[in-house]
Amino acid sequence: MPPLLMRFRVDLLLLLVAMSWGSTYLVAKELVAVETVIALLAVRMLLAAALMAAIIGVRRKRITSAELAVGIPIGILLGAVFALETFGIAHTSATNAGLIISLTIVLTPLVESIVCRRRLPAQFFVAAVLAIAGVILLAGNGSFDPPGPGDLLVLGAAAVRAIHVVTMHKLTSGQALDSLHLTTVQLRTCALLFTAGTAAYGESIPQYLTRLDPGQGTLFLYLVLVCTVFAFFVQLWAVRRTSPSRVSLLLGTEPVWAAIIGITFAHDAIGIAGLAGIGFILIGTAWGRSIEQRHSRNRRVPDSKDLVLEKDNLTALK
C-alpha cells in the first residue's frame, strides 16, 4: 500500500475511534452510578474479551508467550484508565469528562520525550497550549470553575492513558506481534481485574445486569462492540504504524466529538466561547500533528531491518 494511502487510512480509523470515544461519556453517564462502576466495567470487559476469543478461535492461532508478556502489563494500565475515567464520570458531567481526558494530547508527548530522552520542537508546545486553551474555553464556555473530585479522577485517567500509549509503542516496537492477540490479552486482563474487584466493591455482576432495561442494554452493547473492541484494536494497530504523539493528537479531537454529540443528542448549549474552543482544539491538533510528523521524519529514516519488521507486522494481521 502506498505510504500516503496508509497514512490516510491510519488517520481515518483513529478519527473514527475519537468519534466513538466522544460518545462514550454521554452513554456511560446513562449507565453508571458510583456503586456500579466496577460491575459495569467487569461485564463490559468480559463480553469484549469473549468476542475477541471467538474471533481468535476462528483464526486458529494461539496467543504466544511474547504476546502475553506485552499484553498483560499494558492491560493493567488500560484497566487503570478505565477505572479512573469511569469513576470520574460518576462524579462529574459527561462534558467535563470528555474535555479533561483530551489533555492526553499534552501528556503523551511529554511522557514520550522523557522515556526516549529527546526534545520536542518548541512549536509543538505552542500547538498543545492552543489545544489546552480550547479545552478550557469549551469546558467553561467562557469561564473556568475549579476542578472537582470527578474532574481530578479523569485528569488522572488522561495521565495514565498517555503512559499506556507510550508503553504500547515501546513494548511492541520491532516485534512481529498479532494486534488481535494483544487486544485480547489486554481485555482479558481487565476482565479478570474488574471481576475480582466486584467482590470487594459495589454491586455484583448479576445485580447490575438485572438493573438494565432494553434501552440500556443496547447502549451497553455499543460500549462493548464499538467503543471497546473496535476502538482499542484500532489504537493498538495504529500505534505500531505511527508515533504515540500522532496517535494522541488525532485522538485529541475526542472532546470536539463529545461536544458535537452533546449538542445533537443531549441538547447541551454551546456559546461563542465554546465554539471558539472547538476551533482552537481543531487547529492545535492539526498543527501539532503536522509538527510532530515532520519532526519524526527528520529524526530518523527507517533502515532495512525496520522495513522487514514492519512487513512482518502487516503479515501478522492477515
Rank of each mutant, 00 (worst) to 15 (best):
A162H: 01
A162G: 11
M168W: 00
H169R: 12
K170N: 09
L171V: 08
L171Y: 05
T172C: 10
T172K: 06
T172Y: 03
S173G: 07
G174Y: 09
A176M: 11
A176C: 00
S179C: 13
L180T: 12
L182H: 10
T184R: 13
V185H: 05
V185F: 01
Q186M: 13
T189K: 07
C190Q: 12
A191C: 03
F194T: 02
A196T: 03
A196E: 02
A199G: 15
A199W: 12
Y201K: 14
E203R: 13
S204G: 11
S204C: 03
I205M: 11
I205D: 00
Q207E: 14
T210A: 14
T210F: 07
L212Y: 08
T218V: 14
T218G: 13
F220P: 00
L221M: 13
L221F: 07
Y222G: 13
L223P: 00
L223T: 11
V229Y: 06
A231F: 07
A231Y: 03
A231R: 08
F232P: 04
V234M: 08
V234H: 06
Q235D: 07
Q235F: 01
L236P: 00
W237R: 09
A238D: 03
A238M: 06
A238L: 04
R241D: 02
T242K: 05
S243C: 02
P244W: 02
V247Y: 02
V247W: 02
L249Y: 02
L250N: 04
L250R: 02
L250P: 02
G252S: 09
G252D: 01
E254K: 07
V256G: 10
V256W: 06
W257V: 10
W257Q: 11
A258G: 12
A258R: 05
A258V: 03
A258E: 01
A259I: 04
T264D: 08
F265N: 10
A266Y: 06
A266N: 10
H267A: 15
I272H: 10
G274M: 01
L275G: 14
A276H: 05
A276I: 14
